[in-house]
Structure formats: C-alpha cells, structure tokens
Design a protein around this nucleic acid. Sequence first.
RNA 1: GCCGGUGUGGCGAAAUGGCAGACGCACGGGACUUAAAAUCCCGGGACUAUAAAAAGUCGUGUGGGUUCGAGUCCCACCACCGGCACCA
Length: 1117
Amino acid sequence: MAGSRKQYPFHLIEPKWQLTWEQQQAFRAFNPNEEIPANHPFAVRHKVSGKVSAAQLPPKFYILDMFPYPSGAGLHVGHPEGYTATDILARYRRACGFNVLHPMGWDSFGLPAEQYAVKTGQHPRVTTEANIANFTRQIKSLGFSYDWTRELATTDVEYFKWTQWIFLKLYNSWFNPDTNKAESIEILEDVLSENPKREWTRGEYGKYVSGLRTGYVLTPVEERVQLRRKEIDNHRLAYVATAEFWWCEALGTVLANEEVVDGKSEVGGFPVVRKPMRQWILRITAYAERLLKDLDTIDWSDSLKEMQRNWINPSEGATVEFQIDIPSPTVFSIHVFTTRPDTLFGATYMVLAPEHWMVEQIIASANTRYRVNGQITSSTVRLFGGKGQSPENASLVEALARAKNEGVDLIEVNPNVNPPACILQDYSRYVTYQQEVSKQAQAIKDYREQVAKKTDLERGELAKEKTGVFTGAYAINPVNGQKIPIWIADYVLGNYGTGAIMAVPAHDTRDFEFATKFHLPIIQVVQPSDSTIDWQGFTDEGLAVNSADVQISLNGLPTAEAKKQIIEWLKSKKLGDKKTNYRLRDWLFSRQRYWGEPFPIIWKKDAAGNLYHEALPESSLPLLPPPLEDYKPTATGEPPLARAKNWVENIPSNPGATRELNTMPQWAGSCWYYLRYLDAKNGRAFVGKDAEKYWMGGDVERVTNRLLGEKRPTQGVDLYVGGTEHAVLHLLYARFWHKVLFDLELVSTREPFFKLVNQGLILGEMEYFAFRKSPTTLGPWISSDELEDVKEAPGGGLVGKHKTSGEMIVGLRLPNSADEVVKVGSHFVLKSNPDIKVDARTFKMSKSRGNVVNPDDVLVEYGADAFRLYEMFMGPLQDTKPWNTNGVAGVYKFLGRVWRLFVDELSEVEFEQAETTTEAQRHGELLNLIKLHAAIKDVAPTPAQLKTLHACIKKVTEDLDGMRFNTAISAMMVFINDAMTWETKSVSVLKTFLQLLAPFAPHLAEELWSKVSGLKANVPMTESSAATLDIRLQALDSLAYSPWPKFDAALLVESEIEIPVSVNGKPRDVIKVAVDADNATLEAAAKASEKVQQFIAGKEIKKVIIVPKRMVNIVVG
RNA sequence: GCCGGUGUGGCGAAAUGGCAGACGCACGGGACUUAAAAUCCCGGGACUAUAAAAAGUCGUGUGGGUUCGAGUCCCACCACCGGCACCA
C-alpha cells in the first residue's frame, strides 16, 4: 500500500477542518447563564443567545471518556477506539438537538514521571507537560469534537486544590449507621463535647453520649480530651491506621505487593521486610451496602456490575461469641463470623489469624498473674483501667466481696469493655493454663515470624498445605459447652470478618484439610439429601444432625431453617446475631511518593506528648508540594517529602507542628474529574451548583429525557466509555466519593455514571508459528496438529507437547507470513511444505512483542477519518478484536468511493498537478480547484434513490442508538455501492447521506458538504458586515449542527416482495407476491411453484404455516 | 474452585424463532493499461455429481430437547477469554 496514490486529499482536508472547528469553537458546550455568542452555530440552531437559563437550554447530553494517563509512549490504538465511539455519539446527539458536553483531560499524576524524576532529577511536571502536549497533538489530529475550553489535568494546581478540598470533606465527615449516610463530624464533636450546643442524650446519638460523656466522668480533663479526640478520629471517613508494608532496605523504598517476588524485590532481588507504617485510609466499607444496592439503578453491563458485586462480595451469616475457657486477666471471649451458624454443633476447634491481636493477649496472659484475696491492690487498680480509676465500680466491688466470701482467689478484669467487667476465676486452673500456654509460646512466636515473611500470594494461591500451631488455650462451644482448642493458622485472614473462625471440619473444605492434617475431631452435623454422598467435607445444604443439647435442637431441620433458629437462640442468649460481612476493604489512601496531592494535614503534640492530626483550613488550599532536588524516599524510609525539611517543619500558622509526608494515590484525581468538567474554570467552588444540576440532570423537573422520550431518568453522565481495567477500582472509588458528596448535599445525584460501556481490547495482528524439533539446529518440521497444550513461550514463540512422544516442541514465529504460509482446506500450512500445519493466533499488543500499532503511522498513510472508521468497523465496540492493517485499507477505499461519487475526476487531476507545482503552505487553497461531479444535480430524486437513502437513514439511526457502529458503517457502504450506479444524483439525497456520514468521518463529510452547499446559493444576503456574514453563513449551514435526518417509513414500503417457501421446514423456492397478499393467495402461489411441486406432489398436505410478509411452510406427510 | 462472557467461512463479522454468512479483508477471474499501481466488473461455506449448468446432501463448539421451522429458546457437556480466589 505504501507509496500508492491517495484515495483523496485527506492530508489537506483534515487539518483544514480541524482548524475551522477550533477557530469557531464549534463544539463548545454552554452552561446555564453563560454568554452564548449569537453567531455560534449552537445559537443559530437553537435560536438562543446571550445568557440563558437551564430551562431555556436544550436538554443536556453528557458523554464522557475515561481520561488517559499521558504516558511517554504516546497514544495507543486502544485509546481512540473509545474516543471515536463517544465522538460519533456526541456528534449524533448534537445533530439530534441536544446540548452535548464532551470533554477531555489528563489523569497526569503517576509513577512513571516520578521514576524519571528520581533518575534524572528533573521535576516530574516537566515530563508530564511534555507528555500532555504530545497526547494533545495526537488526539486533536483525530478530529474529535471535544470542548477544549474545559480541558483539565489532575496535576493542575487549580484542579488538585479541589481534590484536597474534597479530602477535607471526607476528613470532616463520619458515617452515621442510623441514617445510613455521611454527616458532618461537627455533629459528633458536639455530641461528645463537655458543653454541647444541643441536648443529644436521646435518639440516635445516645450511645456516643453515654459512652464518652457519662462513662468517664472520673478521668482527668486532659485524658477526656484525648479520649474524645480518639473517638472522633475513629469515626472520620478519612482516618489514620497503622498497616504493614513491604520495605526494601537496599532500595530505600516501600514496594507494592506486585513488586515483591519470592520474598525479594523484583528489581535487584534485595531482601524485603514487613514494616508497619502509619497510613491514611478511607472508610469505603461504610458504603458497601449502598454501593451494592445502587448498582440496580444504573445501566451498566451485567459483567461489569458482577465484577463490582464480586469485589464488594457480601456474605450473610452470623457472629458468634465463644468464651475462653481458661483464666486470663484480659481475654474473655472470641467473636467469630460464620455463614453457617447451623453447623455450630460441629465446631471442634477455633482458629485465629496469626496476626490477631488476641494471640499476644494469650501469650501475655501466661506471663502475668493477678492474685487478690479480696483486697484491692495497686495491680488490681492498674488492671482496672489505669490511674485515676476508682474502686467504686459496682462490678469490682461485688467481685471483691464474692472473692472474700467464696474463697476464690483470682479476679479477672476486662478493661476493654465499658464499664470494666470483673469475673472470678480459680487460681489453680489458672496455673495449669499458664503452663500449657508457655509451652506453646515459642512455637507461636516462630510461626508468626514465618508467616510474616510470606507474600499474599504464597499465603493464598501457592499454599499447598495448611500450616498452623496450637495456642495452648481453649474455648467453650456455647451451644453444647464442649471445650475446643484454639489454634492459629494463616488460612485465616486477619482482615476479613473478625480474624477468627469456628472450624467445622466436617462441612468446610479448608477446615477439613486442616483437621485431617492435625488430627482434630470431625463431627458430622449436616446430612446430604443424597445419602450416597460422603458427609465428610460436604459443604452444601442438607438436614441438621447431631445438633441437639438441652437448650436447643436443630436436628432434622433443613439448613436454611436451622440457620434461622440458631440465630434466634444466639440472639436470645446475647451470644451472637445476624450479620452481613463484606469482602470490600477500606481504601488505603496514602502513598510514599512525591508526584501526588499532598495531604492538607498537620501533626501536633498535646500536653501529654501524644501525637495527633489536624486538618488545615480550606483557606490554605491549594497546598503545593515543595520543590525538591532528590525525589527518592529518605534513607530512613520516610517519603520524599521529608527531604523538604523547611516545608515540613516550618508552618507559619502552626509553629511546632509538622506536615503529613504522604501524598494521595493516583486514583484521587480521577474520582471527581467528571464533576470538574461541568464548570472547569470555577475558582470559588469545585463545581457551580447550577452547572452541576443542569449537566448531571439533578433537577427533578428535567430528569425525563424529552428528546429520547424515555420515562427513565437520565441522571449523571449519560454515557461513559472506557476499558475494563477500571471496572473495579476507579469506578468503585468514584462512586464512593460521589455518594459522600451526595450525602453532604454537594451534588444532586446518587450515582455519577448512568450508562457505562466497556470497549474491548484491540489485539495485535495475526501471527503464524511453525514448529520444528530443536529449532537452533533446524531440526525437522512438525505439524501443529501433532501437538497439544500449545502455550505462549517466553521470548515470543510458542511451546507445545508432542501428542505421542510427549516431547516439548518449540514453535517459532514466521516473520513474513504472507510469503511463507498458504491456506489449504480449513487450515494454514507452510508453502514450502504443505504437510506441515502452522498455528495462527493473536496477542495483546506489547512493546516486548513488538506488535504495537502506532496511531501516528496509520494517520499518515490513511488519514484520521479512515482510522476512525476502521476502529468502528472492526466489530462490536465491547468485543476483543485483532488489528488488521488491510482492514484499514478497506474502509479507506470506501471513503475514496464516497469522494469519487462527489467529485469531478478531471478537476482532481488538475488539483494534483497544481499540488506538485505549488509551495506547500498554499496547498490548502488548492482544494477549491476540485469541482463537483457533473452527475450531481439539483433535481428530484427517483423513488428508488429515495428508498436506498431512507433505508440507510433508518439503519444508521437505529444502529447509533444501539451503539452498533460496525453495522451502521456497512449500511453506508451499501448505500454507496448503490449510489455509484446512479446516472444522475440528487443533491438533496447526497447531502442527507453526508449528514449520516458526518459523525463517523467528519472531515470528509464537512469538505463535501461545503462543496454541495455551494451548488445551492440558498442563503439570502443581508446587510451585515462581510466578516459576520461569513461566519453566519458557516453557522447557518453548519454540518455539525444540522438537524439529524428522519426516515420516512412510507418510502420503504415495497409493492411486491419475495418470500421463501419451505417444505417440511427446508427452504425450496422463493415466490414473488404483492406485499398485501392474503394468506390464501400466498398458499396458492406457494403450491403453484414448480420447485415446491417436486416436493409435495403425491403427498398429503398436513398443514400450511403462513406468516404474512415473511414465509410459507408446507408440511407434508 | 467460584462468577461472568464468547464459540458462525481462510480472517473481522451480519442475521425481531422464518432464504445462515449482509458489509469488509484476503483470495481467484475479467476489463482498462506497453506494463504495473489505482480503478471498475464478476466469483468464492463444505461435500456429491456434472463437460458445464441445473440439482442434491451436510453445515453456526459437542450431545440431547421444544417447535411446522432453532445460530437464535431449554437441558447437559467441551473449549477459549476475562474477573475473583484459603473471604469462614
């Protein structure tokens, strides 16, 4: 194809129209009360200008792309796939009369720019801006109708100022479980304050009041302040917790889980250790239920919704409290979560996660003893809750009294409950316990160390065998009083449920494996309905057996009923309750990076020396990152920001305080960018209220989409298109922030994205592989059908197992497949040796494979319109599909046919000659040399032409509504194939066709539109100045804003139609009948057919099925 | 293992339960040309049969079922792709 003659001068047409659109600001979207210039095509089309209210504007259509990370590699062919789809729909909706918002921006914080900065010392902003410039050039060269006045980058100071502002909103809010929404933290502050502004003692805030205001009256003031602060901080939507991370001493940095392989750093293979670090976390789990439920209100694909559901993953079950059997001063009971409370009778042991806080308590409990003889000692008081505690507590007084009376000599105090609880224990039992636990203490310690070294992967999918150790302690099964051992094992995760389980080995696969390995008892409590199934390891539902005690019996109950009854029983005994657990974890929100939004947080010390955090006021935003010379983390593992000592320690408003050193993750900026587009230049708010209401459809009056005539409200972004890689994280995080903003009445819709479509992946071109024995020594060829389990091999080839010999055979890629491969029958073989079949397959595009297609190259050769058209013609938007350069040539040829339908060949030759003799700058003017084709005339179209046109309008319109771009394009090809045969071509028909083509190939359509429009000088002259007139003329006849054509069904009606006739369901002939022929006529015509006669002659006709206008089926015996 | 999706020519694909393969690529043939490119026209599911045409049989991953009629609906299975994965 290279070097061949151009199908049409796209190299001149495309820049010309891109410049025109930019100068006209043709695709600017207007907000309510924004000044609309009278000569803008939007003003002309909708007859509005000046400042116009939301009610006077046409209905909105917000169509959004997932904004890209501007990487150094530039645009990938996958980006324009989604962008073209949204652009086609934006242009279509604009033609339909909507006020279309179609913006673009940059998700520009990110690791690559920072890594480059670490290497070179250059500020990441420099790289980022260069990359944005390159992306902008590439995207603009594709002719998308973005409103560039709303462009934003998450790294813009004026943008991340508001990202920080939203963080402050999260920091200053808490989730009230009673109202099921976020509320201002001020409410909680007031509830807990010594002198509340309101009386909060009753209603939903009662528990906080009694917990902190009345329960701690005896503690000193400064401690009360501290406790209150702790209570408040523990409720914020943005909170601080200490979590463990992989720390690599040699690299001086924290590593992500994926960067750690086999306990060593992926880069360099240095040792890594788990290190606890202070982190910011967002309380997304509070929204788990709403994030799950509201999925039902939005129009996303099932698979996408399912992915989100899986991620949140609710499981319904119950919590159960197990008392610890052994005397211990601080541990009284362990709570577990189970989805099978009905199997409680089968719980034969318990397992704690190795990192469970109670494990330490168990070890510690063996090393301390508290013995009292009815006397208050200093240690009793310390146990009780620290200095200042008073022995006046009723529970303690009573316990002491009983200890004296009953001669029991040990008191346990649990200060973890409020008020502290006391129970009596037998000292001799305690000693036995102590010995047992001490024996296990070393094993526990060793095991925990061993587990800490494992990666999540090793702990999870790679774990072949269960491991664990006995703690020495026992618990009591509440339902039957059985004493069961407490183990620790890493198959129980610390961060799910309560971090502890009741093990029911008979009916849980994992517990069964563990119990088998460690010889723990296995008791059947569920009977499978099919008695041939072994009950051991049976995890399905059945009937409860062996599940009775004096207090309750579940025997004979089906699982569902057994669950219900046991939960009721647990509830009545205050030992447990129904509970839904979510797999969703809180969102770790801080990163040890430079190139991210700094937290508007400072750290202070109170009088007692306790560190606490405080938010900076909104007025201090934006908080800029300090300039640095070295972007690496410090040697002590502090984030890079710690290098800016002056910035960190010298805070004018807060002497003595220090700044938070972490930054926000890349997800932060992308959580709300779709809101900023609505009002991108607003300096006073993250988004203006009117703009937000109009574009998000939050105004109740306007939720019914007038133009679409749909009853369903279209709230939020009307269409959001992007890749599946963001199916979970980005889309979940953004929904979470949106819901918080909704609760705080900062946005007016519950969900951000009403309709969402995932574009499919574009794979590389087809590659062919031939197999041979020992390829390095050019061994004999082996046909691919002699192999099985053929897989991708490192290095880009394939490897498979020989079916008979079992030998591993390597397949090498054939670099010149067109020359080396030929098709024979249903498969490909080597040209040089037709007995050898080759393997043909496609791969993901990747740098290492060398199969990446660069859009710039395609554009040079075929132009933007062909590129756009091809990406849409490849197949359904959502499907994964391989790239095929020949396919681009195919649609390019189609555009050439469109061009040749319109233009005069001689004038084109003239143009081409002029191009060779004229200097390059003046080439654009030469387009005027090209004349319209002589066959195009201002005449009435023939009925046949009208039929072809209206069939095309119908198909394209319906396909656009259904986002079936590939079939819309084939409909246009059908039109062109037909139109090429017409002797005279009506301008009106061709103009209408250009309107259909315009969303897909806007440059070519505009160029031809301007040419055919010149044919009809139907615009009346006015007295306006020449310049205005020129713009007005353009605006009046703007293709982008010309109303979308409507098809006339009456024109599509045929007088005669062909319908198939089948005999016994097999099609035998086609008959031509009048369109309104009745059934009798159809039947007669069918039977009269000669071909049909051959099959029905002499046979009994049992039945004739007639579907009017569709088919006739004759059933014979 | 669990969940979701997809299986149709050599390839990308199309078909409200009603003529399977529209449209395009690749391929083959022809026209134009000194020639090539470009363009225009024609032909392509497999098999049987035939000089050719007509014709027939089989065909939408596999096996069943519903129906006058199934790529489409139902049941079971297989393969591939994607997500989750010791989540109690």
